[in-house]
Design a protein around this nucleic acid. Structure first.
Lengths: 245, 245
DNA sequence: CCTACTCTTTTGTCTAGACAATAACCGGCT
DNA sequence: AGCCGGTTATTGTCTAGACAAAAGAGTAGG
């Protein structure tokens, strides 16, 4: 027995089961970049499937840049696996840590209230439905670098009511606990609105990068978040291939 | 003969040839959303390959959201195919057209000169190597909305020397002709630098969205482009799933 | 020590076929 | 028209096997 923890969960097609079994430890960080993944032959023997099925799972991971494959050398966790994930998820705490800084967040506001018209539109709920509103300020090495204004539909994540977000950001908390099917991004620049200017210590009109993200499970929105960062403090970096499959 | 223009180019693996043959017309807009793509059976007969090979190509396109597949109903160009592509490629001409506007671009400058230190660093070439520098201003319905400052390594795309960019943007021209293996994005906000303010008619210090993109073929850079848009004029919109394959 | 060659592992691609699941379609009936 | 059931086209998944290509590993010869 190899004891590397690769186990199929029996849910859905075999190639996706194998994919999940390998992607999981990579995305969670349990398998560091460079770590060798068992060869197709080994996986075939372990799971009792055909090589085409294993190959399909691994080729798909390679296509997304989570693993790198070389003939004879085998398959290893890709060095940039984290960078790809960041582009999709943009967890500022991880980003700051990766740059060698110290992250801290203040919870400036937290309230569960009936949704107004605007909030209802953002979360695609009926006006008057109770929604959770969170405002946080993120610091890198003590300097405020981002204002986070988040709306959450508590019906999609009831456990959030008892969470204090002491050692975890709301974004990561949701990501780890609430399964999602689709995310939507809008990225733009604005001149600092009043709230952002006040909380981040900017002058009115200073240029800011704004990322708005809405996450869905099926037809229902889980959360909407607006992240405002002063110009220069934050850039989004992404890297991808021609997505050749 | 079906005459829908699907032709293999003989370059590389069959499944990628088929993929390109279908992705091309979708990305260029020649095939509108909803258009039916020939069934696997038809493609098998047309290209003389096995169904697994066709399936691999189509499944990969479906995984990226370029096409949608339903049993019995067949494969059609996805409604949001352009949106996904935009997130990766950001062709402003297509973006404006999609929003119902009229796109026009002025070629403000064009020069092939030895690279200075900064240009050499951006393109990862030796200082003094000849590089092509292009500056364009994009308009939507006559209003300037984006400044494009582009460097191209002519060694990677010799035919660019004779191109006038009359009906095509340099970005799309390169995308269609020069194969690439990787792209790198940096997205940020800045207060309008002098050149952008002048060409876009902004006041100094106005907030701008800046996208810098560098495209590679293997170890060599093909092009570096900086796209500057005034706040509000342009947003990047993206949509993706949890990348399940 | 270095080089050239062979051996072997590992991935990359492709084929031919099989069965399953879905859902559009069609015919007959009410 | 509207409903119901069978038919069939289409995609989804999987298998077993084949050959090719890359590249690490070892080996023989200089």
């Amino acid at each position: 027995m190899n004891g590397d923890g690769i186990v199929l969960d029996g849910q859905g097609p075999l190639h996706l089961q194998i994919r999940r079994a390998i992607a999981g430890p990579i995305l969670s960080g349990a398998w560091a970049p460079g770590r060798r993944i068992p060869s197709e032959h080994e996986l075939v023997a372990r799971f009792g499937v055909s090589r085409m099925t294993v190959n399909r799972a691994l080729a798909s991971l390679a296509g997304e840049g989570l693993v790198e494959r070389r003939r004879r050398a085998g398959t290893v966790v890709a060095a940039r696996s984290a960078e790809r994930a960041v582009f999709e998820i943009w967890d500022i705490a991880a980003e700051i840590a990766r740059a060698g800084g110290v992250h801290r967040a203040d919870l400036l506001a937290r309230a569960e209230e009936p949704a107004g018209a605007e909030e209802a539109a953002l979360l695609k709920v009926e006006p008057g439905t109770a929604v959770l509103r969170l405002v946080l300020r993120h610091h890198a090495d003590g300097v405020p670098v981002q204002l986070e204004e988040r709306l959450v539909d508590p019906a999609m994540a009831p456990a959030i009511r008892t969470e204090t977000f002491a050692g975890i950001t709301p974004g990561r908390w949701l990501l780890e606990r609430v399964p999602w099917t689709e995310a939507e991004h809008r990225i733009g620049a604005v001149e600092a609105p009043a709230a952002a200017a006040r909380h981040l210590g900017l002058s009115r009109g200073a240029a800011c990068l704004v990322v708005e993200r809405r996450t869905w499970r099926g037809e229902r929105a889980i959360t909407h978040v607006r992240l405002t960062s002063p110009a220069g403090a934050q850039v989004l970096v992404g890297r991808f291939g021609p997505s050749a499959g």
